[in-house]
Write a protein that binds this DNA or RNA. Structure first.
Lengths: 101, 101
DNA sequence: ATATTAATTAGCATAATTGCTAATTAGCAA
DNA sequence: TTGCTAATTAGCAATTATGCTAATTAATAT
């Protein structure tokens, strides 16, 4: 679940694609125009994001509209937050006592 | 910043290490015992996490204590959440041009 | 000095990722 | 049918990640 999403979000271009989709659905060509990478390269990143369920694709005549899957982004963020100890106050990173067990 | 953290968190073993550190600081050996991977392999994952500033290391006599860096985890989660469109006309750090549609 | 324990670093092999160009599929319009 | 546009897939080279064993550093103790 989140494992694929976090891996997909590890690449800067893929994060930028997700960022570009914040403002609404875009076609593959529109997205490819935003980056220096070639269109096939962007297309592959889109496939990776789709495989991780971070985006959905919908055919519109000759083009394909991509849109972000918000819930999966939320799940991914939650998975990262879950790595922080929930209960028991924790300091930032300077000195705190280690729990002995 | 978050780019290294998200990349580091893309690997399941590294996430499990962070998970193991939720309950408090642990030594390299204690962490290595938790996984099937060899100690050197775990050690390398620790180096990756440290490089991403997700953990800190402190020498304690013959062993080295690792602890999670909570603030960086928070930043990483925030970076993922930032990929979700904030409600209505609300542009945080949108450096993309708007779609023509 | 040697020994012991804790941990990392070195070196290597394999696997996965990335990004390109060229080729191909998909839909639409004459 | 042909042609055109949109997009993906194929195939390849280069890079990076992963994980192992063997060697090495570090701290402590005898």
């Amino acid at each position: 679940m989140e494992i694929k999403a976090l891996k997909a979000l590890a690449h800067p271009v893929r994060r930028q694609i997700m960022e570009a989709l914040r403002s609404g659905a875009k076609t593959s060509g529109e997205l490819a125009d935003l980056f220096d990478a070639s269109w096939p390269t962007v297309s592959r990143h889109l496939a990776t994001l789709k495989e991780a369920d971070l985006i959905t694709a919908e055919r519109r005549a000759t083009s394909i509209l991509y849109r972000a899957n918000t819930s999966v982004l939320e799940d991914a963020a939650a998975a990262v937050l879950a790595l922080i100890r929930a209960d028991d106050g924790n300091d930032l990173d300077d000195d705190m006592k280690e729990a002995a067990e």
